[in-house]
Nucleic acid binder design. Structure first.
Lengths: 344, 344
DNA sequence: ATGATTCATGTAAAGGTTTACATAGAGGCA
DNA sequence: TGCCTCTATGTAAACCTTTACATGAATCAT
């Protein structure tokens, strides 16, 4: 069916009646070869069905056109949508995406990072907020690197993400504007930088509205659905209940709504709820969740733009790493309304 | 920080006091070098931090250790979970996964297929039921290929997927066992092979239960949430209503449940509903959806096993392509119960 | 003791590119 | 005309492996 042996640059050169150097130039810097020659070469390429051997090219050039994307969890909806942006932008720039799925296993991460050098990866995109801190990693020569969604702890890589502070603030301001004053913040934790910032946005909005500390019910949580459910149980054991729940992410919010429904309450009539992320599930639950939308594919696109700038820069890492924060939008759906007048 | 120039096999050879051939052998077929030499080499590798240059290796060997996965939609939950199985298994066999995201655009698909030859990919995994049928593609020399989830139209690639007939049958039998006799099948279409098979399973079960054609309400649909909603509207315009909806996939089922809720009906008290796929959303809606679970990561794992067998086989495609159908399980949740006694 | 066999290692070619440097022809200018 | 510059192309080296083949030593059978 297909010719057993792929045509090489030499086949093209022979047919076009030029040297292999000219063919190479015709392909990669067409302006350096005469118009008529270029046409002969293109013709020969068509005839032979020639494709450059990327392996030979990478070997010679010292780097490939592969970008490694390291992610702890491929299934995370944030990941897949961002990947779309990454893939599209990378492809437009003639680069391919290699997926490294770490499952939070440091050994797997190290293996993939090693990949980076053995495959001469052009760049590295990190979805993972933590890098294994073994000596193996710090001694490893990594290609230009960019972090996405969460800045990498203890390492100064440029970072592209959502403006979590602005997002947290927007969600909170929306609840305040609806008339809520006693608001629970669900998902307080020091573990994740993004969550810390959302909390900061919450406080900023509450400060600006002059809501005192007593009316801010801070509940710990790790972003899981269980943590949301648990938060509700916890609050019902305290003496004061909030009228609204500002949740650190959608998953938490879904947990909160589950628990409220289980107790027979109606959202938004009895309690208002906001999320953060706008995961697909946010539309499927009822009522649909009012939330902050992650500008996922924009983040992916921006990350590749920055990364390519790094790759093409001659002096790697001479400038100070930059943070690129993209401001998210509030998505109005059905889980927020004015607080009920009679106490629960 | 890291040495500017990666150590090469020659550095290792010099330090170990052997030839580069011996180093190569020590790394890739250790049994062929004497124990003491092997130790010297390993020591030298440790000292230099040597990693084989995969580009040089691939160039010499004529193929890389990269497997291209072509998918129309990265965001599809089926895709990501299957990818986990693919990635894990590929990694265990020292291969890496390159993602090609076609967005159903034939041109993008072709570009990625071309990738396959330029990067000397070891293999190809197709998530896409349709291949662009241009001459460009049929003339293209593709590496060993396997289809996943949907067999590829008009092309005889081995295929790993769920046993859709068995799954469709199981779901239908479950409804029959609950006492339903008038059942709607939502999502009838010729366009997708998987859907055709689910329909076949439905008919098989209905035949076995001797349910006549009048009690099978077949409604067209393309698997979208809108098609589910639309099906309900359609059925309410006919003179007979089903007591249960067997939906071709979960997304359709969610649409059906949405529309029923909008009309004020209760699932499962008024109508029972089953889905197919077990997408994450199936647990988030209320009631949680009784459905057929795709054995996703098993499919991914199996696909790579078959693909590697193909890659390692000396005589490509001499055997007839094989179908590997994995039997899915029924997941019991809250959307099915006995039919109500009083008609709607 | 001798020839045959096995084992461990070395030598060198090949894989397909890109690119520094060389070359040659054309055109411009005095 | 003679010299210089510029442009288009060619030559050959380098990138780093793997592996067929060669070599020499050691082991074995007779």
């Amino acid at each position: 069916m297909a010719p057993k042996n792929q045509a090489t640059i030499e086949d093209v050169a022979r047919i076009a009646g030029v040297s292999i150097a000219t063919v190479s130039r015709a392909v990669h810097s067409p302006e350096r070869v005469a118009k008529t020659t270029r046409q002969k070469v293109n013709q020969a390429i068509l005839v032979t069905g020639y494709t450059t051997n990327a392996m030979a090219r990478s070997l010679r050039m010292g780097r490939s056109n592969i970008i490694l994307v390291l992610a702890p969890d491929i299934g995370d909806p944030n990941f897949s949508s961002t990947l779309i942006g990454i893939e599209t932008e990378a492809r437009a720039r003639n680069h391919a995406i290699l997926i490294g799925h770490t499952q939070n296993d440091p050994q797997r991460a190290i293996d993939y990072l090693r990949y980076t050098t053995s495959h001469k990866a052009a760049g590295l995109v990190l979805f993972t907020g933590r890098l294994p801190l073994s000596d193996a990693v710090s001694a490893m020569p990594l290609p230009p690197t960019i972090a996405v969604f969460e800045p990498v702890q203890d390492a100064a890589y440029p970072y592209v993400g959502v403006d979590d502070i602005a997002g947290g603030r927007k969600a909170t301001e929306h609840l305040l504007a609806a008339g809520h004053r006693k608001i629970a913040f669900v998902g307080d934790t020091q573990m994740r930088a993004a969550f810390r910032r959302r909390r900061a946005g919450f406080d900023l909005a509450m400060d600006a509205a002059r809501v005192d500390q007593d009316n801010r019910l801070i509940v710990e949580g790790d972003g899981s659905i269980e943590s949301g459910r648990h938060a509700v149980e916890l609050l019902f054991m305290r003496d004061t209940l909030p009228t609204a729940f500002m949740c650190v992410n959608d998953t938490t919010a879904i947990g909160v709504m589950n628990a409220l429904a289980a107790r027979g309450y109606n959202v938004p009539l009895d309690f208002s709820v906001t999320g953060f992320d706008d995961v697909p599930q946010a539309t499927y639950i009822s009522p649909a969740l009012t939330t902050i939308r992650q500008p996922r594919s924009i983040i992916g696109k921006t990350a590749i733009e920055r990364l390519m700038a790094l790759i093409e820069a001659d002096h790697p890492a001479t400038e100070t790493p930059k943070e690129d924060l993209i401001s998210p939008d509030l998505v109005l759906r059905g889980s927020v309304t004015t607080p009920r007048q009679t106490p629960i």
